[in-house]
């Protein structure tokens, strides 16, 4: 279980615009163990989607991986040829996206789109591919799979389309499934079903999963470990329980405190003031300093480094370099 299948080292993905280079992902490290579910959490604009697209080498123009390594089973994908990447995409690493409504090609039948990956990676015959497609559709809980093969995406509901997307990503039995906000566009009951399905895939097929989301409810449900991203960097990383119960970064703490709790009727839900800074706009110091309730002088000067707190828990915050910083964090933010 503890053997990493994917290691991301010092990954930097920048967008090279006319106004200079914008660091969307600015030097992140994380790993994914075999059979593990890792959650990458952050607000919109924190760089989590760019991270996942970087792993697949699918960052669109003008984005470019400028530095770092992405080791998949020891092989650096950053240096891999386009031909090799095509074998990895869909074959070794599957990916599903946020918008099931627009992520399926509207002019081709579901069956056609499902068998495509098999025809690419497994060189299967049409009949065998068809059989396998029906099998995987049943596995992801799609009813009347045979009929669905001949349906077009617009004839399906959002939840069903997301199941089709998952079936499509899983059809070649990839080792890793990257799910980029897979439940965001779905309503709550369907969300729970999709999360259950992902857990099932993880248990039954031993697929390692990277779950990208802004929803802490989702990560607490399915993830073994969590990495919190802020402004293109990982600010805190740890096992789900300890990270959610005992967040060590003010940003994580803010996120946790802004989860609504139906048991208590509060006056107002907590929210972190301000927005994620646009990438590259913070030149020095901690990028969260401007929004941080615990910020002190040093925060706007020094860049925090990742501090290992033990038990797989790491945090990037200057408070932990101070003497009474950790205690200070225990006080409520409200």
């Amino acid at each position: 279980m503890d053997k990493p299948i994917l290691e991301v080292k010092e990954l930097k993905t920048h967008f090279l615009t006319d106004n200079g280079s914008v660091p969307a992902v600015d030097g992140i490290d994380f790993h994914l163990n075999d059979g593990e579910v890792l959650g990458i959490v952050g607000e919109s604009g924190s760089g989590k989607s760019v991270t996942s697209l970087s792993i697949m080498q699918l960052v669109g123009q003008p984005g470019k991986i400028v530095d770092g390594e992405i080791l998949f089973d020891g092989e650096d994908l950053v240096k891999a040829s386009e031909k090799r990447m095509r074998q990895v995409r869909g074959g070794k690493i599957g990916m599903i996206f946020q918008e099931p409504m627009t992520s399926l090609n509207p002019v081709y039948k579901i069956g056609n789109q499902l068998v495509e990956a098999l025809r690419i990676h497994k060189k299967m015959s049409k009949d065998a591919a068809r059989k396998r497609a029906i099998e995987i559709m049943k596995l992801v809980g799609l009813p009347r799979a045979e009929d669905l093969m001949n349906d077009y995406p617009h004839q399906l509901s959002g939840g069903m389309r997301q199941r089709v997307m998952i079936a499509m990503a899983m059809i070649c039995e990839p080792k890793i499934l990257i799910a980029d906000e897979p439940t965001t566009a779905l309503d709550v009951t369907i969300q729970a079903q999709i999360l259950d399905l992902m857990k099932k895939l993880n248990h039954e097929l031993n697929t390692s999963i990277i779950m990208i989301t802004h929803d802490l409810g989702v990560v607490s449900e399915v993830c073994d470990r969590i990495a919190v991203m802020y402004a293109g960097r990982i600010v805190e990383e740890g096992e789900t329980k300890s990270l959610l119960r005992n967040p060590q970064h003010p940003y994580t703490k803010g996120l946790v405190e802004s989860i609504p709790d139906v048991r208590y009727k509060k006056e107002r839900l907590y929210s972190i003031p301000g927005n994620v800074p646009t990438p590259g706009s913070v030149k020095k110091g901690c990028p969260f300093a401007a929004r941080c309730a615990f910020a002190f002088d040093k925060c706007s000067e020094d860049s925090p480094i990742l501090i290992d707190l033990g038990d797989n828990h790491r945090v990037r915050c200057l408070l932990h370099e101070e003497e009474n910083g950790a205690e200070l964090l225990q006080t409520s933010m409200k």
Partner: peptide
């Protein structure tokens, strides 16, 4: 070519 389903097709490993 900017749409989501094109990204899906590429994520499948299509040429």
């Amino acid at each position: 070519m900017r749409s989501d389903y094109i990204r899906t097709a590429r994520a499948k490993g299509q040429k």
